[in-house]
Nucleic acid binder design. Sequence first.
DNA 1: CTATATGCAAAATTTTTGCATCGTT
DNA 2: AACGATGCAAAAATTTTGCATATAG
Lengths: 137, 137
Amino acid sequence: MDVQAVEQVLRKQGCALTPQRRAVLRFLDGNLEHPSAGQVFDAVTAALPSTSRPVSSRATIYNTLALLEQIGAVRVLRGTDGEMRYDPNTTPHHHRCCDVCGRLEDVPAEAVTLLLDGRPAVGEVRFTGRCPACTTA
Amino acid sequence: MDVQAVEQVLRKQGCALTPQRRAVLRFLDGNLEHPSAGQVFDAVTAALPSTSRPVSSRATIYNTLALLEQIGAVRVLRGTDGEMRYDPNTTPHHHRCCDVCGRLEDVPAEAVTLLLDGRPAVGEVRFTGRCPACTTA
DNA sequence: CTATATGCAAAATTTTTGCATCGTT
DNA sequence: AACGATGCAAAAATTTTGCATATAG
């Protein structure tokens, strides 16, 4: 996801570049943590100047995330814990989901292609297991 | 999942074999649809004699399903739609999740082992795509 | 200025919890 | 008879929706 490109697409579609949308874009850009909608909301709330009070609302965050999905700026995933997760990395790649804490980690497309004997996988492949943190515990 | 075996385990643990639990077992046995908790509730409600009225409650269904998971009688999955899904097939196998309708289909363990060049996969592997019904539409 | 987005509040879903009552063992 | 399970109702948590107001272009 490239912030510049997304803003251009939004402009072209006649969508307003509100501070809330900008804050969502800034938080998501380069974010590898697959944040949930709640986490996006918290981040936006923290990022926007608290002087101009309302800051944001959950509805706005969901609206914005749905919009970003529509224009292909984010991939929407759902973790084991049932929360929606948002991935700004829209290039082909896969995920591993921790059985214990629900954390989603990236699995490079090439790694799966190797497993598949050279043929790239169609769609997302989701592996389960334990993330490093939960393996130690 | 074998109903006889599960009932024996429950008895051995001092768990009561209530009509509700029996109904859940009967509905799940051999079920390949990966039903949600709500679907299990509906099925149990329909299956139990409506003459003895209370029939069942959602809390009981969740209790029972959690119990069955604890004793390893069912595998708990979560579909794209965020609902919990219950799979009475506890033998090693994988799933394909429909992007459109959320339906979960079985993928034999051997199919994935083949893809992996003879090495069986660890954990569940989840593929995405479209189920036959949603491919036609 | 006009169309659009925002924030609030409330609804809809799914799952969890507390407690009195009922049923299995 | 005793202990555990049930059903109800209400609480949590996440996501969706309706509407008046505020704001970006």
